[in-house]
């Protein structure tokens, strides 16, 4: 049976927040990458089979998303999502954070651990690697950055199609929002490692074995900081595990969330 998606807009913190939802039973918030997201992806469909999937568009990310001029940090986004869930009466939602969205998920955990279910962090940003750097989007092209999300860069075109002006402008707008919220320090928090030590939620840390965006050591840093985390590595996969190996990620996440 095809998944039915519902689109809605909610006023949160004075900003219009767009949300896509599908499925029922346990609420699971999926937080997308810094390059924005397509509305429908096989991973989202797979997760909606067994959960009530809630996918907000980060405010300002994408061609049509209203820009919140006031927003200055990842914690602002996390707080907004917390308020949205509270207003909707959604409690103890699971969180799945993809790359940049993983950082938002981690911040959300630290804000309300008792009101968070289980957490899946996939190639998550937010931690400062010690031996390498998080890939700096500011110095690479829009397509080069998005293609770097994949172990097999040809998969980029399979997912996104051939590049056109709208796709590129969308990437540019997402990049501007990433700059507005995560410019300095670039793509990590200096306080998150400490805060995470008291986030006791069960956490699954998933990393592609060829993540060219966030160094693999960050998986271990998350596992070291979080009291209740374990790691899974997906073989032959880059940063965007959700887009490159959607079935494997869905299987890992579903087994973990439903255990």
């Amino acid at each position: 049976m095809p998944i039915e998606w519902k689109e809605s807009t909610h006023k949160v913190a004075g900003t219009n927040l767009r949300v896509m939802e599908a499925g029922s039973s346990s609420p699971t918030v999926i937080l997308h990458h810094d390059i924005g997201t397509l509305d429908k992806l096989p991973f989202y469909e797979a997760m909606a089979v067994n959960s009530h999937v809630i996918i907000p568009t980060h405010p300002g990310w994408g061609l049509t998303s209203e820009r919140p001029e006031w927003m200055r940090s990842i914690r602002d986004i996390a707080a907004m999502y917390r308020m949205h869930l509270a207003e909707q009466g959604v409690t103890k939602a699971n969180l799945i954070g993809l790359g940049f969205g993983g950082w938002i998920a981690a911040e959300m955990m630290t804000m309300a651990p008792a009101d968070t279910g289980k957490v899946v962090l996939v190639g998550a940003m937010g931690m400062q690697p010690k031996d390498a750097y998080i890939l700096d989007m500011a110095i690479v092209g829009y397509l080069d950055y998005a293609r770097a999300f994949f172990h097999d860069e040809a998969k980029f075109t399979d997912v996104y199609g051939e590049p056109d002006g709208d796709m590129l402008e969308g990437f540019d707008i997402c990049r501007e929002m990433s700059f507005r919220t995560a410019w300095k320090p670039y793509m990590f928090s200096q306080t998150l490692p400490n805060l995470l030590q008291s986030a006791t939620n069960e956490t699954l840390v998933v990393w592609g074995d060829d993540d060219k965006v966030v160094p693999a050591e960050c998986a271990d840093l998350f596992c070291a900081a979080l009291p209740n985390a374990r790691k899974e590595v997906v073989a032959g996969c880059g940063h965007a595990v959700d887009m490159e190996k959607p079935d494997e990620l869905a299987a890992l996440a579903s087994a973990f969330l439903n255990a």
Partner: peptide
């Protein structure tokens, strides 16, 4: 936009 398209060879 024009520069973004130029950067991608479009």
């Amino acid at each position: 936009r024009a520069f973004v398209e130029f950067s991608a060879g479009l």
